Computed example of a mutant assay.
Amino acid sequence: MLYWLMKYVLLGPVLRLLWPTRVTGTENIPENGGAIIASNHLAVADSFFMPLHVRRMVTFPAKQEYFTEKGVKGRLKKWFFSGLGQIPIDRSGGSAAQAALDTAIRVLRDGHLLGIYPEGTRSPDGRLYKGKTGVARVALEADVPVVPVAMIGTDKVNPIGSKMWWPRRLEIRFGAPLDFSRYDGLVGDRFVERSIADEIMYSLMELSGQEYVDIYAARAKELAAADAAGVRPAVPAQPSAPVAGDAARVPESKAS
Results as ranks from 00 to 15, higher is better:
residue 197 A to P: 12
residue 169 R to L: 12
residue 182 R to C: 09
residue 241 A to G: 13
residue 194 R to M: 04
residue 101 L to C: 00
residue 71 G to H: 08
residue 123 S to C: 03
residue 212 Y to V: 09
residue 145 P to W: 11
residue 227 D to V: 11
residue 57 M to W: 06
residue 48 F to T: 00
residue 20 P to R: 10
residue 217 A to I: 06
residue 232 R to H: 12
residue 251 P to L: 04
residue 3 Y to R: 01
residue 18 L to G: 03
residue 25 G to W: 05
residue 57 M to A: 02
residue 245 G to A: 10
residue 241 A to K: 15
residue 17 L to V: 07
residue 234 A to K: 13
residue 26 T to M: 03
residue 140 L to V: 08
residue 152 I to T: 09
residue 14 V to W: 13
residue 121 T to H: 03
residue 235 V to R: 12
residue 12 G to Q: 01
residue 252 E to P: 01
residue 210 Q to E: 13
residue 124 P to K: 10
residue 94 G to N: 10
residue 165 W to H: 13
residue 39 S to D: 01
residue 42 L to R: 14
residue 217 A to M: 08
residue 18 L to C: 14
residue 193 E to M: 00
residue 151 M to H: 06
residue 7 K to L: 00
residue 248 A to L: 10
residue 9 V to E: 00
residue 77 K to D: 07
residue 209 G to P: 00
residue 93 G to W: 03
residue 115 G to R: 02
residue 2 L to Q: 10
residue 50 M to Q: 09
residue 223 L to M: 15
residue 201 M to L: 13
residue 97 A to E: 11
residue 165 W to A: 08
residue 90 D to E: 05
residue 220 A to T: 10
residue 252 E to L: 03
residue 244 A to E: 10
residue 243 V to A: 14
residue 85 G to E: 00
residue 155 D to H: 14
residue 175 G to M: 04
residue 234 A to C: 11
residue 147 V to L: 07
residue 63 K to W: 05
residue 149 V to N: 07
residue 117 Y to V: 09
residue 97 A to V: 07
residue 6 M to A: 02
residue 123 S to R: 06
residue 181 S to C: 06
residue 101 L to S: 09
residue 252 E to H: 05
residue 4 W to N: 00
residue 34 G to Q: 06
residue 88 P to K: 05
residue 208 S to V: 01
residue 70 K to W: 01
residue 172 I to D: 05
residue 60 F to C: 01
residue 177 P to M: 13
residue 61 P to W: 08
residue 208 S to D: 04
residue 76 L to T: 11
residue 5 L to T: 08
residue 179 D to G: 09
residue 115 G to L: 05
residue 130 K to E: 08
residue 68 T to F: 04
residue 168 R to P: 07
residue 95 S to H: 11
residue 111 G to K: 01
residue 234 A to S: 15
residue 167 P to K: 14
residue 252 E to S: 12
residue 101 L to R: 07
residue 74 G to V: 06
residue 167 P to A: 13
residue 102 D to R: 14
residue 196 I to D: 08
residue 240 S to N: 14
residue 194 R to A: 08
residue 153 G to M: 12
residue 25 G to I: 09
residue 8 Y to R: 11
residue 227 D to L: 04
residue 207 L to N: 09
residue 131 G to E: 06
residue 159 P to T: 03
residue 27 E to H: 14
residue 195 S to N: 03
residue 41 H to M: 07
residue 121 T to C: 00
residue 122 R to Y: 08
residue 111 G to C: 02
residue 54 V to C: 00
residue 217 A to Q: 08
residue 94 G to P: 07
residue 224 A to K: 15
residue 42 L to Y: 11
residue 189 D to Q: 10
residue 149 V to Q: 04
residue 173 R to P: 01
residue 90 D to Y: 02
residue 127 R to Y: 03
residue 21 T to P: 02
residue 181 S to G: 07
residue 245 G to L: 09
residue 138 V to T: 13
residue 199 E to L: 05
residue 67 F to D: 10
residue 30 P to R: 02
residue 55 R to L: 01
residue 72 V to M: 15
residue 134 G to V: 07
residue 119 E to N: 07
residue 227 D to Y: 14
residue 74 G to S: 10
residue 60 F to M: 08
residue 245 G to Q: 10
residue 174 F to R: 03
residue 117 Y to H: 14
residue 171 E to S: 14
residue 188 G to P: 13
residue 185 G to H: 06
residue 91 R to H: 03
residue 238 Q to H: 15
residue 86 Q to D: 04
